[in-house]
Design a protein around this nucleic acid. Structure first.
Lengths: 197, 197, 197, 197
DNA sequence: CGCTAACCGAGACGGTACGTCTTGTCTTGTT
DNA sequence: AACAAGACAAGACGTACCGTCTCGGTTAGCG
């Protein structure tokens, strides 16, 4: 349990109190890890963080924004961005590492974010922005393969990045993150053959 | 508004009343189309269908099961299961038709089902069962390509089916169903090259 | 558990089945004793008696009628009707015995009957009829005292009976049946002095 | 119909809102008078008062507590507490006034309270506390008679008060409040003779 | 140096939906 | 015709959260 929440905090005046901010994020993460998305309510976070509900609503306009912050906060251990020197190695490594990365609580948060985005427009926007940024970033992996002359120039890097991450999403959303080495190999093989010269 | 809900129904005794069953599904569909997942509550469905809540809970153990039934009911217009004679035609046709199929309310229902599955275990089970059945069915498309000698024997049909549908899921979940002809082409191209001999 | 309810009964044709009748009363009594008035529902009785709800509704038009039957059934041990030879002895004995009589489940049933009568008209009628009959019967006790020349001729026997039983009702309804020997003495004393010549 | 419910109320913050409190009591009283105990549900009161159910449950832990408050609120016209100068006058006056006081809706509320107390423990407690307080208060009437030297010193004031009110309870509970002048006279006569020197 | 504005915790508020329970009616198929 | 079984519409139960509001208090920074 974080030390923050056990202390009593007060307003520090007409400015955002960083202690409250931190305590809320910490409480949100704890609750998510303990009770999952089902038990994740603004009410519960406020209770745990010893914060007023309006304080949360003031800084996070929706549950999704809070969730996104929790996700970003969990990403201290970096996202996969492999550079093994071969396309096959990169793809396999990307999928394997992403699956491992999501296997902890992180995956649960991201799943919930996707779920939330299906009902809430603000969440959808936030997710879309984040997802596009990620897809573009990962497309760099394929650009490097093109630069090496390993990948066809007429294959679309963004499309490849999108397709690869789509597969990871589906593994996440259908609870099949565990023991996927063999099926990752098969998918990697299809993708590599589809992209190499 | 359905004609069913305005009529008065009577119990037909100690057996499931198909009128009630139908009225509930119809009401569920209507509410979903009008108010979306956010407005979709058992309470509202019961009200609209002029049914008691326990009647709904008796037959659908969770919101997800009801949602799944609504989805199945919407599938009167058949799911895509193309057989164009070439692998490329099949894949492009599958993705194009699925995107078109999901562009109406059906897509909204399926999205909500996926979202629901992230929070509720029963929903997750129901979706998983359904998803596996669909993936296996669609794998038949690739088996036919193998039989024609068009597709590599060592490429896994299930993995291919899974990867292809994963891409469709991501389009659905990130609200990119509209105007995807070009990107579908690009993805189709990657998949075909990855699978052909 | 009664032996009746464990056997499976069937209709004996176009006539009232006395087994069902008995099983229902037995179940009603058991449920009342186990769970009190709060847990006493037609539903529960039907379940316990392995009877259909309509069967109960056919023979007992309201919960109160069923309750009254249960009460009558419990009265195998006779109601108090003392004849000690003195007015004081009779009054003290009546109150003491009634308190003892009600101290078991019987009191609970009677309380519930009174409670039910406050909400349900049919119950009120049934209770009123029963109560009048009892008051008149108990008035006989005072008539005997008059005949003995012990009680004033101008004191109304019905009023005395009514007042005495009113006190018992209040003890019952305010959960003060236990350890009332001293207060019964005090009330007896007031009543005796109020009635003797 | 009260004017309160048609106005819109606003929260006055983290303190109990007296408008809501009042609106709920008013609605409760109205519903009770219109529909009786049978139609008296927390749900209905909330609807009528335009209050949320949790607001009611926050302040009144059970239906009985709400009922008790409604009863207390109706007591603006004071409870009988006569001081005629003679014991006989006091008793007759007490019973007559109480019967008149209960003849309106007040009696219905009190009856329901007694009924509720037979099924619900919290109601029983609340009623018991109230009833004891009343009995003790009324005992003062008899203490005054003792001080005047009119009543026997060895007659118990509490017992007398209890017995007298018990009779009123029974009249109330058996729907015999109307036209009881003669029987009240008879009972008064018994009580007076039982208590005077 | 006093005023004001934004912050803080707390929590009450009107609502909505939850999932369960009971009510009294109705129908089925069996005896 | 009575029975066991149980589906049905209706609606109350008490709880959990939602998002908004007000309270009383605190502090920073402007005037």
């Amino acid at each position: 349990m974080s030390s923050i929440e056990s202390q009593s905090r007060r307003s520090i005046g007409a400015a955002r109190n960083p202690d409250s901010h931190e305590a809320i994020l910490a409480a949100a993460e704890e609750i998510f890890c303990e009770a999952g998305y089902a038990g994740f309510s603004i009410e519960a976070v406020a209770r745990r963080a010893r914060a007023g509900k309006p304080t949360i609503y003031r800084w996070w306009p929706s549950k999704a924004h809070l969730l996104l912050d929790v996700y970003t906060r969990l990403k201290s251990s970096r996202m996969p961005d492999p550079d093994t020197g071969t396309l096959e190695g990169d793809i396999r490594s990307f999928l394997t590492e992403l699956v491992r990365f999501w296997s902890g609580n992180t995956g649960g948060v991201y799943k919930s974010l996707i779920a939330e985005a299906q009902a809430d427009d603000k969440a959808a926007e936030a997710l879309q922005a984040y997802s596009i940024e990620r897809t573009q970033h990962t497309a760099g992996m394929f650009e490097r393969a093109k630069a090496r002359g390993e990948m066809r120039a007429d294959a679309d890097s963004l499309a490849a990045s999108d397709l690869m991450s789509a597969y990871a999403w589906k593994l996440l959303l259908t609870d099949r993150l565990a023991d996927q080495a063999d099926i990752i190999d098969k998918v990697t093989s299809i993708l590599v053959r589809g992209l190499v010269k």
